[in-house]
C-alpha cells in the first residue's frame, strides 16, 4: 500500500480542486475499486498504552468537535474476579492520555473504541431516509447532505459511536477515514498509533496480515450478543469490557 510522493500530491490537489471547484463531485480515483475491498480493523489490547494519540489524530484529521468522539480510549480496572463491576474511565475520551494509575492487585488495561462498521448495522436499519448506509466496501458512512438529524441512529447504536455534530446538526461518526483508505493511506488513528495496536484491515485482500492475525489469535468483538456483524476485532478482550 505504498504510494509515491508525487502520486500523493496529484491526489491531494485533485481532492482540493474537487472540493473547491464549482464542478461538483468528480469521478472517484480511477484505481480504487469498491468491489475489491472489505474494510475492517483489528485492535490488540495487549499493545495499547493509552497514549490517546489515536483520539488526537482522529480529531485533527476529521475536525471532530470538542466533547464528541469518533474514537476514544477507555481504561478498565477490574478487581480480581469481579468482572461485573469494572471501573471505567475515559477523561476527554483519553485524548490527552490518562492520569497514572497506581499499581494495585486489580487487573487494568486500555480499550480503544470506534465505530464497529457492522455488517448488520442497527443504525443503518433505523435511518428513515437513507442518510447512513454501508458502502459496497464495508464502511458505514453518513450522508451529511441528506441526514435530517432525527437521532434515531444514535439511539440504535449499541456502542455509543454516534453523536450530533453541534454545527452541522447532522449525525457524525467514524468513517474509517474513508477519504484516506480509498487513496491507499491508512486511517489517521492507525497512522498515529505508536505501538501498532490498531491495524486497518482489508478482508478481501488475500495478502493482508489480518488473515494471519485472525487465524492465530483469540479474537472477540464488542457485545457479540447484539449480533451486529461488527468488523472491529479485538485480540485479548477481557470479559468485563462492554
Amino acid at each position: 500500500m505504498s504510494m509515491t510522493r508525487r502520486g500523493f500530491i496529484v491526489l491531494s490537489a485533485a481532492a482540493a480542486s474537487a472540493l473547491s471547484g464549482a464542478g461538483g463531485v468528480q469521478e472517484p480515483e480511477a484505481r480504487y475499486r469498491m468491489a475489491e475491498h472489505w474494510w475492517a480493523m483489528t485492535i490488540d489490547i495487549d499493545k495499547c498504552i493509552g497514549c490517546g494519540n489515536c483520539v488526537k489524530a482522529c480529531a485533527e484529521e476529521n475536525q471532530v468537535p470538542e466533547g464528541h468522539f469518533r474514537t476514544w480510549v477507555e481504561r478498565y480496572t477490574v478487581e480480581a474476579g469481579d468482572y461485573e463491576h469494572p471501573r471505567v474511565e475515559s477523561p476527554q475520551g483519553g485524548k490527552n492520555g490518562f492520569p497514572p494509575a497506581a499499581q494495585s492487585t486489580a487487573k487494568t488495561f486500555f480499550v480503544p473504541k470506534l465505530c464497529n462498521h457492522c455488517e448488520h448495522s442497527p443504525c443503518v436499519q433505523v435511518c428513515p431516509v437513507g442518510a447512513t448506509f454501508e458502502s459496497p466496501d464495508g464502511v458505514v458512512l453518513v450522508d451529511e447532505k441528506y441526514c435530517i438529524g432525527c437521532r434515531y441512529c444514535v439511539q440504535a447504536c449499541p456502542y455509543g459511536c454516534r453523536y450530533i455534530h453541534p454545527e452541522k446538526h447532522t449525525v457524525d461518526k467514524c468513517s474509517l477515514c474513508y477519504h484516506r483508505i480509498t487513496k491507499g493511506l491508512t486511517t489517521a488513528c492507525c497512522e498515529a498509533c505508536p505501538t501498532g495496536a490498531r491495524q486497518l484491515a482489508d478482508l478481501k485482500n488475500p495478502k493482508d496480515p489480518v488473515h494471519e492475525f485472525l487465524r492465530t489469535h483469540k479474537v472477540q468483538v464488542l457485545k457479540p450478543h447484539m449480533a451486529t456483524g461488527s468488523k472491529v476485532f479485538y485480540k485479548d478482550l477481557d470479559g468485563a469490557v462492554r
Partner: peptide, 17 residues
C-alpha cells in the same frame, strides 16, 4: 436537526426503518 429535509421521509422512505 434539519426540519427542512423532513420531506425526504416521504421521498425515499427506508423500508427497514
Amino acid at each position: 436537526g434539519h426540519p427542512e429535509r423532513s420531506f425526504e421521509m416521504y421521498l425515499t422512505p427506508h423500508r427497514s426503518s
